[in-house]
Design a binder for these strands. Structure first.
Length: 156
DNA sequence: GCCAACGTTGGC
DNA sequence: GCCAACGTTGGC
């Protein structure tokens, strides 16, 4: 079993949006980066857990946990000319982009902010806290995952 | 809104 | 196959 981190802009799709969905489940569509796609396509399995991260907002940080409930399959938004994620180079015959489906597992009592993450010696190797990181889907180690869940329970 | 860092594109 | 130009991401 593996552990992951999913970034989302809460103005577009937040953890509360996920929680409000039918079955509290949503396809993670719109990923248009090869490295992120490869993680989803090649490595994610049903039952893996992911951290839900809010990016590009006033309150940047990890806000909860999701579970992978469906393995990689073609992302239909790539075929939809009206979608902001449309990619003419992807077709149902030769799908270029994949997505998994995630289910809400838990919302933290508080946001574990990026600034806090950067201060943790145990997390110094995370891609998330390193310079210029732009990956929207990335692996985290089990130790990092547990550590961040523990941080969420700290009283500040 | 700014801007640094990054990934992708396309000319050669 | 190189690399400059460009568009995007994302923290601040």
């Amino acid at each position: 079993m593996k552990y992951w981190l999913f970034k989302s802009e809460p103005d577009v799709f937040s953890i509360d949006d996920l929680r409000a969905r039918p079955q509290q489940t949503e396809p993670w569509d719109g990923v248009r980066n090869y490295q992120a796609r490869n993680f989803m396509r090649d490595e994610m399995k049903v039952g893996d857990l992911g951290l839900f991260y809010h990016s590009n907002c006033a309150d940047v940080g990890v806000v909860g946990v999701v579970e992978i409930v469906k393995e990689a399959h073609p992302d239909p938004t790539a075929f939809d000319e009206k979608s902001p994620y449309y990619d003419p180079k992807s077709s149902p015959d030769m799908p270029r982009w994949m997505m998994v489906a995630v289910k809400w597992k838990a919302s933290f009592q508080r946001t574990v902010s990026l600034a806090e993450l950067k201060q943790e010696a145990q997390l110094k190797d995370m891609r998330l806290v390193q310079r210029g990181n732009r990956l929207s889907v990335m692996p985290v180690t089990q130790a990092e995952f547990s550590h961040i869940c523990k941080m969420a329970q700290r009283n500040l």
